[in-house]
């Protein structure tokens, strides 16, 4: 059983890691602690529902449409909600992301109704049996895709000009402006990437479970994941996400599904008290 839980946890944790990575990108770009990351993930599940079930698009086309829509959503959010508050203290910015999550949730429920929707993509749904261990192909695909996305993500930041400018902006806003970087455009880009990563996670979670706004709760686990990993650290976000996935599986497997939250939020609390900068964070930078 332990192996089973660990493997499932690893697979789900990879998805959380992806969502958390999106969160970390937004945080690093403009220090926005995005409480709407959970609902952005939910948007992914519903975008998939629209693209496949409602529009009946072939799967590869649907994927492109979903990603393009996610990028657009991120850019619009940055323009409408975040840019007007740029330079404001922490609290109002947190609040506006909370307001954003209320708005998005309401919009989804108005557009799609409150009943959960089943997703029917052409992702494999069989079960892989390896000895005692049963592994859903969907989970496995999710994990693989998550890792590929992370790889693409790192390549983007390491090897492209846009990636370089994003890293520079995250490093110092002022120096970036004075180097002629259009910081607004960079921040919009960060939101586009952050949203795309959340949405990809949402497509998988919507498929593993059902597309519903209840998934927001799972998406919000990206927050403890990122903080446990270290707010400033990109690898930290991924490791934190995987850790949260494994803890979740172990807690719900051995104790009860209800116990999940406590076993994630108690380590978060301990981490905040003992090592607020997280597992991988930098002590100096950790003082927010």
């Amino acid at each position: 059983m332990l192996v089973q839980f660990l493997l499932t946890g690893l697979a789900l944790g990879s998805i959380y890691g992806l969502v958390a990575l999106g969160f970390a990108v937004i945080y690093k770009a403009e220090r926005v602690f995005n409480f709407a990351q959970g609902i952005l993930m939910v948007c992914g599940a519903y975008l998939a529902y629209t693209a496949t079930t409602q529009l009946g698009l072939p799967f590869p086309v649907a994927v492109i449409v979903i990603i393009a829509a996610a990028a657009l959503l991120g850019i619009v959010i940055q323009f409408l909600f975040i840019r007007p508050l740029s330079g404001q203290p922490l609290l109002p910015v947190i609040m506006i992301t909370i307001a954003l999550s209320i708005i998005l949730k309401a919009l989804i429920e108005i557009l799609y109704g409150v009943q959960p929707k089943p997703l029917a993509t052409s992702l494999p749904t069989g079960v892989l049996i390896l000895g005692d261990v049963r592994l859903s192909q969907l989970n496995l695909t999710a994990a693989v895709v998550s890792w590929v996305c992370m790889g693409v993500f790192f390549a983007f930041f390491r090897f492209t000009k846009a990636g370089l400018l994003m890293r520079a902006t995250a490093d110092s806003h002022e120096a970036a402006i004075l180097s002629g970087v259009n910081v607004n455009r960079i921040n919009a880009g960060a939101w586009a990437i952050g949203t795309i990563l959340a949405v990809i996670g949402g497509v998988f979670l919507g498929q593993i479970q059902l597309a519903s706004t209840e998934l927001e709760h799972i998406g919000l686990l990206a927050l403890p994941a990122v903080v446990i990993g270290g707010l400033q650290s990109i690898p930290g976000a991924i490791v934190g996400g995987i850790l949260v996935g494994v803890i979740e599986q172990l807690a719900s497997g051995y104790i009860s599904p209800k116990a999940r939250d406590v076993f994630i939020y108690i380590p978060l609390l301990i981490m905040l008290l003992v090592r607020p900068w997280g597992l991988f964070g930098n002590r100096e930078l950790g003082r927010v």
Partner: peptide
């Protein structure tokens, strides 16, 4: 004001 986490080369590239 330099980009502290970027290399010298990367700093110049951003410039």
């Amino acid at each position: 004001l330099v980009f502290k986490n970027l290399t010298v080369e990367e700093n110049l590239q951003v410039g």
